[in-house]
């Protein structure tokens, strides 16, 4: 028995045996790994949607990935990173209207009575008229507006720098919170923004486009222009502004889009 065993060990493999053995091992591993890759892919395709809340309509693992990726890329965010600006001659004459969610079908809306409502602590609200806002120092920007759909357009906007506005109304305590929430007067469109992009020097509360008052379709009388975000965060016709430590509700994040959507 013993000698037999030793003999077996000693016999060198023939070339044919070597080829067979290596083929067996490598193809075996190849098919095993391919199988687990297919199983992993199926797991992802069959993964349930996240529980609907502040974000919704994305598969749970994909939402986790979006949120982790956000944390990674926020490390690169800086207020010193400015969006490229252009000369006025490059600005589009007809600014594209892509969506009217939150401002169409709002029959109750009365522009003469409009006031921006800022929700403070203790149920207090600060109401500010458009004249008061227009009295603040004006900032203009001509930049390439980028839509999440993939189109972009060079547009000219004018208004008050959001950081100037917050400072003027002494909302410094509020800006220590992590998020700002903005909603249309009818509450049908709403966005949440991290404070760092709120305080970015190119973020405006805009009331002018191409040196004219903003048209209704573009969100008269006051809209957000936040060049460090996709268009979906650039809320038209701001009704209310609020501050919070957690993510405010966000229309497109509920529809499966990345909450951050930063550029």
């Amino acid at each position: 028995m013993e000698t037999n065993k030793q003999k077996k060990v000693k016999v060198p493999l023939t070339i044919e045996q070597k080829i067979k053995r290596r083929n067996f091992i490598s193809f075996g591993a190849f098919f095993a790994l391919s199988g687990s890759a297919v199983a992993g892919w199926k797991w992802l395709l069959d993964a349930p949607d996240e529980t609907a809340g502040i974000t919704g309509n994305a598969k749970a693992p994909l939402r986790r990935a979006l949120n982790k990726t956000e944390l990674f890329f926020r490390n690169f965010f800086s207020n010193n990173h400015l969006v490229k600006t252009y000369p006025e001659s490059r600005a589009a004459k007809n600014i594209r209207v892509n969506s009217l969610i939150g401002i169409e079908d709002d029959e109750d809306f009365d522009p003469t009575n409009w006031k921006l409502a800022i929700k403070l602590q203790n149920q207090k609200t600060l109401n500010i008229s458009i004249e008061e806002i227009k009295a603040l120092p004006k900032t203009e920007i001509i930049f390439d507006f980028k839509c999440v759909e993939g189109w972009d357009q060079i547009q000219h906007w004018g208004g008050v720098k959001l950081s100037d506005f917050l400072e003027h109304y002494k909302l410094n305590e509020q800006t220590k919170q992590r998020y700002m929430g903005l909603e249309t007067p009818n509450g049908e469109y709403y966005v949440g923004l991290e404070m760092e992009c709120v305080l970015h020097p190119q973020t405006l509360l805009a009331y002018e486009m191409n040196n004219q008052p903003i048209s209704n379709d573009h969100g008269a009388p006051l809209r957000l222009i936040v060049p460090v975000k996709y268009g979906i965060k650039n809320l038209k016709r701001i009704g209310t502004m609020s501050f919070s430590y957690t993510r405010p509700r966000d229309y497109w994040a509920e529809q499966g889009y990345d909450y951050y959507s930063g550029l």
């Binding site: 309509n57 994305a58 598969k59 693992p61 994909l62 939402r63 990935a65 979006l66 990726t69 999440v148 759909e149 497109w252 529809q255 499966g256 889009y257 990345d258």
Partner: peptide
């Protein structure tokens, strides 16, 4: 399927 596409693409 834009939202879905972005979610897969960025993972």
């Amino acid at each position: 399927r834009l939202a879905e596409g972005m979610a897969y693409h960025f993972l």
